[in-house]
Design a protein around this nucleic acid. Structure first.
Length: 419
RNA sequence: GGAGAGAUGGCUGAGCGGUUGAAAGCACCGGUCUUGAAAACCGGCAAAGGGGCAACUCUUUCCUGGGUUCGAAUCCCAGUCUCUCCGCCA
């Protein structure tokens, strides 16, 4: 969320930067409501002062007047509240401003490739899709999941379940021991306010799984990514400078409705309602934000390098970056069956956008209290990493060579094959 | 599910109708002292919002939302959360 005080300083510049994205925001109304709101506040404060003086004077002859002021005050407060909530609604639906590094563009086709890495494998046979491989091995079962749960879920079995676990543990260990992240095992359910903090609400409620506790209780949601719960760990906090940067990592299931994407990637486990992801979150000083984004992205590419998977690094254009992000790198892994790169990680710098919503601040070197910067990135999506390993390490006979770095996590298993 | 206790500033913790934005301690910052540090002593130290070029000033905030009152952290009602005991349970 944007700081109104800052917006006021140069309204037109603000408008112009937001409009680099495809947005529909009523800026005139925003400006008007802000003015109205401040007028109401002034009126309100004057009356409050008057009332306060009377009560301080303890002059009984004025008590009656004070009562009248109270009535007038009630009306003004009512109007002010209404104006403020309209204002907040507009404000909370405005996305973050793209950083100047971010290229202009309409959609994902306008994202710009930064670099390519790794060797695309050559097969002397036609490479199969991960779901064909998995089903042949009898270690991926989509039909069974349909029976027990519904579409877009999967059962992972035997050595593929072990592989999934190995991927997750390998990534966690790497980020904890090599990259200095603190391991967290968080709740998988978030309150409405928490979801607001990272920007999932109010705009994207339809993508979330809401769960019912009991009638009348507050709304709760299954987390769509650990980013939500990890980032909100610093909600409502003034952080000591000496505690920054904060770096957190968690491996969790993620739950998404993916509204509007039905019909896309219906086959296989590319797009599921539930998937595992290792998530990185950083809370940093504002001038370290973009450096941290590079660092975080390198932590993610490090995993791909270790797994010897071919990938490319993209910078997202203004039309494709997420609501809360000012700048985003996507990492795309090579999938032989599709003969193209697919997203496996997304690392974003959110500047102060989330911390304003969460009221996360720190005291900077000048002892001023300022909003902190937050970042998040996948390091990596475990489900998609499983797909990438299956497809890139597949053999003609349908078996899978286990990437070397994962073998210590799999009882030194070198090859996955049926029976 | 039953029965109690509680929610106050970065933390601990007093206050229980009228200069209380809130005692005290810790932490933190500045100073004196010291070769330096520690200790001791002195001083400072909440946030949000509004107005002002600024110095500054005003308003709000003692879990949340209502109510009583000229006036509420303090009284009343509702809700949320936390803790303890009993029950149940992975």
């Amino acid at each position: 969320m944007h700081n109104l005080k800052e917006i006021r300083k140069d309204f037109d510049a603000f408008k112009k930067s937001v409009e680099r994205r495809p947005v529909d925001v009523n800026f005139d109304l925003l400006k008007k409501l802000d003015k109205e709101n401040r007028d109401f506040i002034q009126k309100k404060e004057n009356l409050e002062k008057e009332k306060k003086d009377i009560s301080k004077s303890k002059d009984e002859s004025l008590f009656k007047k004070s009562k009248e002021i109270s009535k007038k005050l009630d009306e003004i407060i009512e109007e002010q509240k209404k104006t403020k909530s309209e204002l907040d609604l507009i404000l909370s639906n405005i996305p973050n401003i793209p950083h100047s590094d971010v290229p202009d563009g309409k959609d994902e086709n306008d994202n710009v490739e930064i670099s390519k890495s790794g060797k695309i494998p050559n097969f002397d046979f036609k490479p199969k899709a991960h779901y064909e491989i998995g089903e042949k091995l009898k270690m991926l079962d989509f039909d069974l999941a349909t029976k027990t749960t519904g579409s877009r879920f999967v059962f992972v079995k035997d050595q593929l379940a072990l592989l999934e676990r190995a991927l997750s543990n390998f990534m966690l260990d790497n980020h904890i021991n090599k990259n200095g992240y603190q391991e967290i095992s968080p709740p998988l359910i978030a309150s409405e306010n928490t979801m607001f903090g990272t920007g999932q609400l109010p705009k994207f409620e339809n993508d979330q799984f809401e769960i019912k506790f009991e009638e009348g209780s507050d709304k709760k949601f299954l987390i769509p990514t650990a980013e939500v719960i990890l980032t909100n760990m610093v909600k409502d906090k003034i952080i000591d400078l000496k505690d920054l940067p904060i770096r957190l990592v968690a491996s969790t299931p993620c739950f998404r409705k993916e509204a509007g994407s039905y019909g896309k990637d219906t086959k296989g486990m590319i797009r599921q309602h539930q998937f595992h992801k290792v998530e990185l979150v950083s809370i940093v000083e504002n001038d370290k934000c973009l450096d941290e984004l590079e660092r975080m992205t390198n932590c993610a590419t490090g995993i791909l390098d270790d797994l010897k998977l071919p990938y490319r690094k993209m910078i997202l254009c203004t039309g494709d970056i997420g609501f809360s992000a000012e700048k985003t790198y996507d990492l795309e892994v090579w999938l032989p069956s599709e003969n193209k790169y697919r997203e496996i990680s997304s690392c974003s710098s959110c500047s102060t956008f989330q911390s304003v919503r969460m009221k996360t601040r720190y005291k900077n070197h000048n002892k001023e209290i300022v909003s902190a910067s937050t970042l998040n990135g996948s390091g990596l999506a475990v489900g998609r990493a499983l797909i990438a390993v299956l497809e890139n390490y597949q053999q003609k006979d349908g078996s899978i060579i286990v990437p070397e770095v994962l073998r210590p996590y799999m009882n030194n298993l070198e090859k996955i094959s049926s029976n």
